[in-house]
Design a protein around this nucleic acid. Structure first.
Lengths: 218, 218
DNA sequence: CTATTGAGTGTACGCGTGTGCACTGAATGG
DNA sequence: CCATTCAGTGCACACGCGTACACTCAATAG
């Protein structure tokens, strides 16, 4: 293999892959668009391909099945979610303002990626089979990461792993509830969003204000 | 109308209604059975009628549409949920043991009505259109009722309505998470159930232990 | 320059869907 | 006793579904 051949190969793969990747994206985006107001289970292969602008049978060049596409969407959406927590982590962390900052990050992130968050919340609870399980697994991992973050805070250092996980689960659950509220609010309704934001902050404060008085045994 | 006629009329309506009601029940039960591992949206009229043992077109003698049947299921399931909170209310209420007792009531109730709780949790988040909205509305009412209950507790008497609603929402959300955990645990896995139960108690304790230190303004 | 690869096409199939329509036959009412 | 009501039947239809199969025709490889 000389340089020329190598370049050729590289060029081929780039262009080839590029084209294929573009169609793959079109399929994922088409699915996401259709999922705006319906569950993944009620999504048909034909609908998705039509929306993506290709013929039904070409679908199989990219995914082995709809379920496969669903799992790909889970991975993509979870990448978005992790992006959010990374943003929240790197925000100014005055221990008092951290809740306010985190909630603001969440609200902005949900606005910017409505489709991913809608997909995750819907399929976590309403989903079926492989897709639901994939979301459940990823969210559990996510919650465990949050538990590690929590362990660094004052007053939580000596908590047991189990208790930290319990608290992280509670926070994630509450957060998903907030996400749902945000998604159900009409997009332009700033009053509603402000109220949801305030309520979300209160929820987190109520959870954290109990930390000093916590005892693990009932 | 003499007595005889009246009796006849009564007998007719009873028997007539009885027969119809029995088929209606069969349809609801069939749907519930099929919903054990699938979402309501992916349920077909033909499947339900087949499972219920009648011919597809006879469906319309009982419901105007599948959506209609879904709303009926929401109402029925919410009646079950309200039964649970009534049971929890009437349990021995030593302020310390109330959490433990409430969680036990919840766990037993979910075991006894798995199908209803599965339906509610699934359609609350994963649902679509009329059914999801019906569940959302009913759950909001339920949460408001819980807020009224909370207002009777020591330390919560002087809380604002908004704060009480916030706390009630948080509790309902956490409770629904517990329901989900219970439904996902394999039926016979008593270890898993015990762990879920313990975690649920801790969640509630973490929420309530913060009450004395609560201040409404951030 | 020629051969191969592979993304996307078009046709065709059997199946499950919701629902319209004319019907049966037992329960009911006068 | 006869007429009416109405829950449930059986047939028919048009449609959307997943996918098998043979294909086109650029991009790529040697």
């Amino acid at each position: 293999m000389d340089v020329c051949t190598l370049n050729a190969v590289t060029a081929e793969q780039v262009t080839r892959h590029e084209r294929k990747e573009r169609t793959r994206r079109a399929l994922l985006d088409a699915a996401l668009r259709l999922l705006a107001d319906r569950g993944f289970a009620s999504l048909s292969l034909r609908e998705v391909t039509k929306q993506a602008g290709i013929v039904p049978t070409a679908f199989y060049r990219h995914f082995a099945s709809m379920e496969d596409l669903g799992v790909a969407l889970v991975e993509e959406s979870m990448r978005t979610l992790r992006g959010m927590i990374r943003a929240a982590r790197s925000a100014p962390a005055s221990s008092a303002g951290i809740i306010r900052a985190s909630v603001r990050t969440l609200v902005e992130h949900v606005r910017a990626h409505e489709d991913h968050y809608r997909f995750l919340t819907r399929e976590r609870y309403g989903g079926t089979g492989t897709v639901q399980r994939a979301v459940a697994v990823e969210l559990r991992l996510f919650s465990r990461e949050l538990a590690v973050d929590l362990a660094r805070f004052e007053g939580l250092r000596e908590w047991s792993t189990e208790d930290l996980n319990m608290m992280a689960d509670l926070i994630v659950t509450a957060m998903l509830g907030t996400v749902l509220d945000l998604l159900e609010a009409r997009p332009g309704d700033t009053d509603a969003v402000a109220h949801i934001q305030r309520t979300a902050e209160k929820r987190l404060r109520l959870v954290t204000v109990g930390v000093p008085g916590w005892r693990s045994d009932g």
